[in-house]
C-alpha cells in the first residue's frame, strides 16, 4: 500500500471500459446524458457501434438494458448514482434484478462527493441496490481497484451495481493488488478496534488507524469493496478479534455497509459495541466543496478517530488527524 498523500489518476474506469469494449463486442455502453461525466466519452468516440445514448430517460434506459441483456449483450449503464437507483428503481427491480440479467449499472458521484445538494448526492444507492435480490453491490475509490472492476464484473451472471467517484481517484494500493469480488481484505491488523471501510472512506480509515496507532490504540482496517454479497467470514473474523467495531461509508448509516456489518456480526453472535460512520439518517446539502460536507456530516478522518477514542472509553482529548489527510477533487455539476 502507498502512504498518503496519495497520487491520483483520471478516468481509470473509462479507459478500462473502452479496453473491454474493444475485446468484447457484446459489451454495450449506455449513457443517460452524462457521457463525459461518466468517463465514457472515449468509448462513444472510439466504439460508436457499441454505444447507445439513452437520453435523459433513466426508466426507459434500464428497461431497455434488461431487454438487451436478454438478447446476449452485456450492457454497462451509466449515469449519476442518484439517477441510476432512485429514479428507475421499479425498472431495475422488474427488468433487471428479478430476471437476474447481466446488466452493469455504474453510478457515479457517490454520497457527498458532490456539493450539488440532495438531488445529486447518492446517499441511499447502496441500500436500495442491496435490497434487490440477485444484485451485487460494489463501492470503490482506489484507482487500482477501479481499473480492475470492469474485468471483474463483466462475466458475473447477474446484475451488478458499482458506485464510482468522479474526477481524481487516489492510488492507495500497489500495482499488484487484486480486486476480489469474494473477499474483504484485512489491510492492517489490530486488536482494539476493527474499522470496516468502503469506497471513499477507506483513505480516511487508514489515516485514522495510523494516528490511533501512534497513541497505542490497535486498529485493524478492513477494506470491504463488495457490500453484497458480503464476505461474512472475514468480517466475523476481524470483529471477533476486536473490542469495538466501526463502519465507515460515504452513504447513509441505514442500509449500507454499516447495516451489512451489523447483520453479519449479530447473526454470528459476536457481541461488540458498533459505531456507524456515515450520514446519520439525514439528507446533506448543497455547498461549494465536497470536503466541507465530509467534515460537516462526520465523514472525516478526525471523526473516525474521535469515534474510536470514545467508543473505547479513552479519557482525555482524542489525537488529532494531520491536516489534508484526504485527497480528491470534487466536481460540481
Amino acid at each position: 500500500m502507498h502512504e498518503p498523500p496519495y497520487l491520483t489518476e483520471l478516468k481509470p474506469y473509462g479507459r478500462a471500459l473502452l479496453d473491454m469494449g474493444r475485446r468484447r463486442e457484446e459489451v454495450l455502453c449506455l449513457s443517460g446524458d452524462l457521457t463525459r461525466q461518466c468517463e465514457i466519452d472515449l468509448f462513444q468516440a472510439e466504439l460508436p457501434g457499441q454505444f447507445i445514448h439513452g437520453g435523459m430517460a433513466e426508466a426507459n434506459m434500464m428497461s431497455m438494458a434488461g431487454a438487451l441483456a436478454r438478447c446476449g449483450h452485456i450492457p454497462f449503464v451509466h449515469t449519476f448514482g442518484v439517477f441510476a437507483t432512485r429514479r428507475p428503481y421499479d425498472q431495475i427491480a422488474n427488468a433487471i434484478a428479478y430476471p437476474n440479467l447481466p446488466v452493469r449499472i455504474i453510478g457515479f458521484m457517490p454520497g457527498v462527493s458532490t456539493p450539488g445538494g440532495p438531488s445529486h448526492q447518492a446517499i441511499d444507492d447502496v441500500a436500495l441496490m442491496r435490497a434487490l435480490p440477485n444484485m451485487t453491490v460494489i463501492d470503490l475509490a482506489d484507482a487500482v481497484e477501479v481499473a480492475q472492476v470492469v474485468d471483474a464484473i463483466v462475466d458475473v451472471p447477474g446484475p451488478v451495481y458499482v458506485r464510482l467517484k468522479r474526477g481524481e481517484i487516489p492510488v492507495i494500493f500497489d500495482d499488484d493488488h487484486i480486486l476480489s469480488l469474494d473477499r474483504a481484505e484485512v489491510l492492517v491488523p489490530g486488536t482494539d478496534v476493527a474499522l470496516f471501510a468502503s469506497g471513499m472512506l477507506l483513505a480516511a480509515a487508514l489515516g485514522a488507524a495510523r494516528v490511533l496507532g501512534e497513541q497505542g490504540v490497535s486498529v485493524s482496517v478492513i477494506n470491504v469493496p463488495v457490500i453484497k454479497p458480503i464476505d461474512t467470514a472475514t468480517i466475523q473474523g476481524a470483529a471477533a478479534e476486536a473490542k469495538v467495531l466501526i463502519t465507515a461509508e460515504n452513504h447513509s448509516i441505514i442500509g449500507g455497509l454499516g447495516s451489512a456489518v451489523a447483520e453479519t456480526v449479530a447473526e454470528a453472535g459476536i457481541g461488540r459495541p458498533l459505531r456507524r460512520i456515515g450520514l446519520q439518517d439525514t439528507f446533506a446539502e448543497g455547498s461549494l466543496s465536497g470536503p466541507y460536507l465530509f467534515e460537516k456530516y462526520g465523514l472525516s478522518t478526525q471523526n473516525l478517530i474521535e469515534t474510536a477514542w470514545t467508543a473505547l472509553g479513552r479519557t482525555g482529548p482524542a489525537p488529532t488527524a494531520p491536516a489534508a489527510a484526504e485527497t480528491g477533487e470534487y466536481s460540481p455539476v
Binding site: 426507459n60 434506459m61 431487454a67 427488468a95
Partner: peptide, 8 residues
C-alpha cells in the same frame, strides 16, 4: 422500453 431494447 423492453420492445425497443429487442429491436435495438
Amino acid at each position: 422500453s423492453a420492445a425497443t431494447g429487442f429491436v435495438m
